[in-house]
Amino acid sequence: MGDSRRHEPWVILQPDGWLRRPALGLNSLMQIPDKIQSSLKVQFGRFLNKDGAVRRMSAEISSEKAKQSCSAAASAEVRLDRHLQAWWDNPSWTDEPPEIKVNVPEGSLCNLNLRFKAGLPPDAVYNIIIDPENKRVFKNIKEVISRKVLLDEGSRQVVEVEQAAIWKFLWWSGTFSVHVFVDQNRKKHTVKFRQGRAGFMRKFEGCWTIEPLFVDKELCLPLNPHSLEEYESCTGGRGRVGSAITLDQLIEPALLPPPPISWYLRGITSRTTEMLVNDLIAETARLRTISNNANAKQGTEETGDANIGDPVRECGDIKERWRQRRKSGRHGSSLRLTSRFL
């Protein structure tokens, strides 16, 4: 009887009974690339669709962040102008010398802690400190050698700065180069700095901290405001906002000399830092007593107009006005108090 088992045409039995690997015909060989290509097209198409969706989502998020940033910037400028107006209406304020505490941690030259108050709102003081051209204010800065923005997140920036500083003590004076990384946070009103390249000093770091001071707090009696919003509400926006400022600074030279030389160096450092703070106080006094001139009124009106409409469209105009007002301020015709995003 014949073999009743049925075989497919492409199945071939070897003499030993094992199945021989089927031979693929020309049609099969032609179909493999098509199948692979079809599969790749499907998978690649899904990837492109997914990647496109991710890109669109990322673009939407970036646009929303830019919108929020511009809106916040416009609101901050309006708030600053309102606070300045209160000071122009009532510039009465008595500046006091800073309180200075000097500690000498082991292995360092000194740790300075300075506390003082200023008759200007925190945003205004913050703007003076971070101004790239603040050597006009701080007499111990001879020149800014280089400045580079490493990170820009709107309200926070990380900047690399190298500048030549001047020191004076009794009959002696000189200059030294300082290379620092500065972390500027407008939302928190902090300016942190630390040394980059080692030079004359092994360690040079510190932090400016600016907190609001409710100058006309008595207008809120019997209430006791604990936030800026509460203070503005209970004073009807007429209360002046000052600043409580703290500067912590740690200095460690590359080579710590023995006494009495270390005493002289400590004295130089204390005097230099005190001079820097006094320069800041003098600048706040100058700005506080500036009358509400036409330029200030125009700046406030322009800021009010900037709040009308789409904040994203207005953002570029706001930044340009800030730059122009600071530029004018360097010639004494404006206030130099508005922000600058570089």
Rank of each mutant, 00 (worst) to 15 (best):
S146C: 06
S146I: 02
Q163K: 07
E153C: 10
G199L: 01
V158P: 03
G199H: 11
G199T: 00
V144A: 03
K187T: 15
R197N: 09
H189R: 07
L150N: 11
V180Q: 11
G174D: 04
S155R: 12
A164R: 14
E205Y: 02
F181E: 06
A198P: 09
S146V: 02
G196V: 11
V191N: 02
F169S: 09
C207M: 15
R202V: 00
S177L: 14
H179C: 14
V191T: 10
L151W: 13
W167C: 13
Q195D: 04
D183N: 14
G154W: 12
L151M: 10
I141C: 12
K187I: 01
C207N: 11
T190F: 05
F193R: 01
I145C: 10
V149E: 04
A164I: 12
L150M: 12
S173A: 14
R197S: 09
F200G: 03
G199Q: 00
V161C: 00
Q184R: 06
I166E: 00
G174M: 06
M201S: 04
L170A: 03
R194W: 14
L151T: 12
I145H: 11
A198E: 14
K203E: 13
S155F: 10
N185A: 00
V149S: 05
M201Y: 12
S177T: 15
R202E: 15
S146K: 13
K192P: 10
V178T: 10
V159K: 01
K142S: 04
E143A: 06
S177W: 05
A165N: 05
R147N: 00
A165D: 12
T190G: 09
E153T: 11
V182P: 08
